[in-house]
């Protein structure tokens, strides 16, 4: 198992380089001029300003030259400077990634717990009304567009009933706690600010529910199929023949096995959400990397776009690695393999 992990870690830099190269080239061949967002459309006629800006932002030189410079800097931990925020991309990402991760972790919790519960209900009561209902609930989350769901949720819970706060991570009048981890829930607790913690939690509920529901469908589907397969196994009949109760058979015996094939989809979903939370972040004014990516794309901010892509790629690679490790933890047969 350790060998597998090491091998994966060794391959990772090369995969990342591939991702970087592809993104860099795509950005170069995009029609559009990033100078517009740097110096403004009016100054494009002024050759002096254009030349100065090009030199300042490293846009002179040929594509291979710029690529070499970028990779060289990247190898030294420098992701470049954002055309738009004029800050190092690494700083931007460090500020925004925790917000996304906080949202994604909560959304994963909603999606995984909800999806697994729905899957158990629908597998146990296969072809019954409960099964159809559970699958419908799961399917709706996948079908309904998140931006629509987000707006409806805001309308219902914020505007109409005023049960939950609107967009953002904290009340606009609140003073944010000093940034330690960047995770609002953690930072408010570290600052000992209980009311801010509750506020942050209340702000998280709607976006996490909307985002979590959107991935519930695929999780339910996978776990249900895997549960149905497991429930037909001899060891399930054996567990029942031992006199175990239905719930014990379902959770202790069936789910422990059914989750193994579902781990892949859980890891994949998590990685997907890191960059896939764009729409929800936009609707809920969530200062994460999703909204950062949208802003970067609008202004052809290459360094920022590539930076977000690297984070997304890294997310996938790490999620894959974690999935492998989780496999070994869940399945004793995997531990000796590889």
């Amino acid at each position: 198992m350790l060998k597998v992990v090491l091998r994966r870690l060794l391959v990772m830099p090369f995969l990342l380089l591939g991702i970087v190269t592809a993104t860099f080239l795509l950005a170069q061949f995009t029609k559009g001029n990033p100078l517009i967002s740097i110096i403004g459309a009016r100054n494009l006629d002024n050759a002096e300003i254009v030349a100065a800006a090009k030199a300042r932002w490293g846009l002179d030189g040929s594509v291979p030259e710029r690529y070499a410079t970028y990779v060289w800097n990247l190898a030294h931990g420098d992701l470049g400077t954002s055309f738009r925020t004029k800050q190092p991309v690494l700083t931007d990402l460090a500020q925004r990634l925790p917000a996304t991760l906080e949202l994604v972790i909560c959304a994963m919790f909603v999606g995984a717990v909800g999806g697994i519960v729905l899957a158990i209900v629908s597998a146990e009561f296969k072809d019954s009304f409960a099964d159809h209902l559970a699958r419908l609930v799961a399917l709706l989350g996948s079908c309904l567009p998140v931006f629509w769901l987000g707006l409806i949720a805001l309308f219902l819970f914020t505007v109409q009933t005023k049960l939950l706060p609107g967009p953002g991570r904290l009340d606009i009048r609140a003073v944010a706690p000093p940034t330690v981890t960047g995770f609002m829930l953690v930072d408010t607790l570290l600052a000992g600010n209980w009311s801010a913690f509750v506020d942050a939690l209340r702000h998280l509920i709607l976006p996490a529910l909307v985002l979590g529901w959107s991935v519930m469908g695929i999780i339910t589907r996978m776990v249900r199929a895997s549960m149905l397969d497991v429930l037909g196994q001899d060891y399930i009949t054996m567990a029942r023949a031992k006199g175990a109760g239905r719930l014990r058979v379902l959770i202790h015996h069936a789910l422990a096995n059914a989750l193994i094939p579902a781990l892949t989809i859980l890891g994949f979903t998590f990685a997907y959400l890191i960059t896939g939370s764009v729409l929800v972040e936009t609707i809920f004014s969530w200062p994460g990397i999703g909204s950062y990516a949208v802003d970067a794309a609008r202004s052809l901010d290459y360094p920022a776009i590539t930076g977000v892509t690297i984070i997304g790629g890294l997310g996938f690679l790490l999620a894959n690695l974690l999935t492998d490790i989780a496999y070994a933890a869940a399945d004793p047969r995997m531990r000796e393999a590889g």
């Binding site: 009949t237 054996m238 567990a239 006199g243 422990a256 096995n257 004793p332």
Partner: peptide, 20 residues
């Protein structure tokens, strides 16, 4: 079940839970 009536299953390869 399991207390007064017990059962031995046919296939030992599949009758035991692989993850316990």
């Amino acid at each position: 079940r399991g207390r007064r009536i017990a059962m031995v299953f046919q296939d030992p390869m599949t009758a035991l839970n692989p993850v316990k």
